[in-house]
Each structure stands twice: as C-alpha cells, then as structure tokens.
Nucleic acid binder design. Structure first.
Lengths: 196, 196
DNA sequence: ATAAATAGGTAGACTGGTCTATCTATATTA
DNA sequence: TAATATAGATAGACCAGTCTACCTATTTAT
C-alpha cells in the first residue's frame, strides 16, 4: 500500500507540525517521543530530520506556530471591533477561541505556558513564550493608552491587571479541564472597562 | 567512613524530599531521574524505594509538601493580621514568601503549576494541585464574605478575581525569572480592597 | 548481661525498555 | 536525473525499578 504522501494532504512538514501540536498539548513535550510524532503524522522518521534540525527545533516551531495562530484569531476578532474597549475584549475572546486548538483528550490550559513549564531557562522556546505574553500585554496596553491618554501610569497598571486576569483564568481553567474560567475573566474585564 | 545516618542530619526520606524539591523545581519532573535525586540526597537508590512506592509517589508527596509549606507560610502571616483585608493580603505575601522555596538556579514560578503542566489528566498530583488552588481561593472567599456579608455573589466574583491576579502574576513572574510581578499583583489587590 | 531479631541504611550490578538521532537501501516524484 | 520520500536497523545514552549482599544501630528475649 502506497503511503498517503503529500498529494492527498499536507506536506510532511505540516503533517508533522499538526501531529506534534496534538501530542505536545495532550501528553506534554518530554512525554512525546519522536516515534509517536512520526507515526501520527504518517511520515518516516527521516522526514522529521529532513524538515527540522532536532526535536527541540520542532518544539520551537510548534510554539511559534501557536503564537501566529493566536495572533490571527485576535486579528479576526479585532477587525470587527472599533472601540478600544471592544478590541480589549477581543483579546479575551481570542484566548477562548484558541482554547480549542488541539485538545483531543481534554482541555489543559495554554499550550504555550505548559510548554514553558517544561523547558529549561535558556531554551529558545521559553523565550518565545515570554515574548508572546509580552505582546499580548502590549496589545492591551496600546488600547488602554488610547482610553486614558493623560494617565500613562494607570494605563500600564491596568494592562498588567488585565494580563494577570487572562493568564490566571487560563491557568485555573487548565487545572479544571474546561474554559469556563476564561468566560468569568472576560466578564471581569468588561466590568472594569465599564468603570473607566 | 561510617554513613551519615539519621543521627547527624535528616532521615533518608527527608533528604530525598529536599533533593527532589530542588531538582523537580529547577529541571522539571520528567527531566529529573531517580539517580540524580539519590545522588543529591546522598542516599542509596534502595532507600528511595524503601520510603516511596515509586517516583510518581515521590512526586505526589513533593506536591503535598509544597501545599503544606504554603499553608504554614500563610498561617504565620495571617496570625499577625486581624482585619479581613489584611488576611487577604497575607495570601499574596505567602505567595511571595513561597517563591523562594527551592530556586537554586533562577525563579521559575509556582512549582505546583509547573508540576501540574507535566502531569497527565488523571494523575493524583494534578488533582492535589487543583485542590491547593481551590483552597487558596476559598481562603480569599471566606474573608470577602465577611467584608460583604449581604452580597454573596460579589464576594464570590471578587475571590475569583483576586485568585486570577495571584495565579496570573505568578505565571508571568515565572516566565520573567523574578517575583516582581507578584508585588504588582499585591498592590492591585490592595487597591481593590481599598475601594470596598 | 548477652544474644538474637528487627529495622533501616549502604553500594552498585542488572533488567527490560525508551529515548534521540543517524544510517542504509529502496522507492517515488518532478 | 536529482531531490525527496519510504521502512527499518542501528548506536549509544538514559530511564525506572529490582536485586544481592553487606553494614549498623536499636530493641527484645533469654
């Protein structure tokens, strides 16, 4: 029987990234072996090493792909909004949207945070996760600066506050196995914005 | 040379738990092997299996020990407080205190959350982490119920809000390598309580 | 008091298995 | 033809856990 090959689906690289996304998210990075990834991707082991320098390189690419994916979800939501307050809520909605990207066997929170927890201090992936979270906070900060043009300090504090709500809710949601906490956090954010 | 034995220091069990605490926190659970733990503890491999049923059992004990440790730190802070608002701030202070328990090679956030990120959905340790976070939120909830005796809904929402601030700040602090974000979250909590 | 039993420690070889990564040899595709 | 895929063997490190064999206290029984 001939292999599925790239004709019927995605390239080996994409198939590997899709397989890795599900396995890394559901089982963790260290617990996911090369063989499990290639088997799920329906691809030869060598194809992994043709497309990625190492497992670590695949992990870093996985993280960057999640970041890009979240940005796209956010952009789609933000494009439909006009008021800075709605653009801020779009950040929360994008988190909620993103919460379903790969949970085949239960919700486990933010894949990027879970990955960072497994990675060593100097790892490139860990730094990418940090940059991602800083970028999320920056989006919040930009909108709050528009809402509070003459109180830069308060805009910064509020951006951090909303970022904490987001990450805290996501973390608790991951422990509890569903995204309900994210909805709570969004309601809290709405409430805070209403009081501006 | 005679072995150190229990006379000059801690028991093998305590030595193992102390060694595991540092290694699990700094390197992660999956990345820490049995041999590394026994070597750091200065203990024979069999002593690990005399005191724990498996590595997994050691991990669960590690998590429960962190929980007890945090509770003790919180109790010490709360004992010095009297007003419910001060008791709530004591929760934030205990997080800050706890942030230094085992970081030998840099701050990495909450050891319990990092552990949970590595553990499978049904793992006993993961459930223990969830219970711990629920207990923290319950402490906040109890105090807020005293502050807002006739608005149970608001007390519950505020408890969740403060819990999100705590976990979100801890998560970001872990990514950034220091506990500054925890101090920011405490200031935000103080501000919210002042407005009650 | 002395001897035996018990509890808990040591060092380190060993098993069976998994891991990442490379290599070979063949087949498909453009 | 040249690039890229395949299956699968292989290397070498590492894993959790078991086992043997010995040592040292303390406790119990005679």
């Amino acid at each position: 029987m001939p292999p599925p090959s790239k004709h019927q689906g995605a390239s080996a690289r994409d198939r590997l990234l899709n397989a890795a996304a599900v396995l890394f998210y559901n089982d963790g990075i260290a617990a996911t072996g090369i063989d499990a990834i290639t088997a799920r991707a329906g691809v030869a082991k060598q194809s992994l090493y043709n497309n990625f320098a190492s497992k670590s390189d695949l992990v870093t690419t996985y993280i960057e792909q999640r970041h890009d994916e979240w940005l796209a979800l956010y952009a789609a939501r933000a494009a439909a909004a006009h008021h800075p307050k709605d653009i801020i809520i779009a950040v929360f909605d994008a988190y909620d949207d993103h919460a379903t990207f790969a949970y085949e066997r239960g919700f486990r929170g933010c894949g990027l945070l879970n990955a960072a927890a497994e990675l060593g201090a100097g790892d490139a992936g860990r730094k990418a996760v940090r940059r991602h979270k800083e970028q999320v906070e920056e989006i919040l900060h930009n909108q709050l600066s528009q809402l509070l043009p003459d109180d830069a300090g308060r805009a910064e504090t509020l951006a951090a506050h909303l970022a904490f709500l987001l990450e805290g809710a996501m973390t608790r949601a991951g422990l509890e196995g569903d995204a309900n906490r994210l909805r709570s956090a969004r309601a809290m954010a709405r409430d805070m914005l209403a009081r501006l």
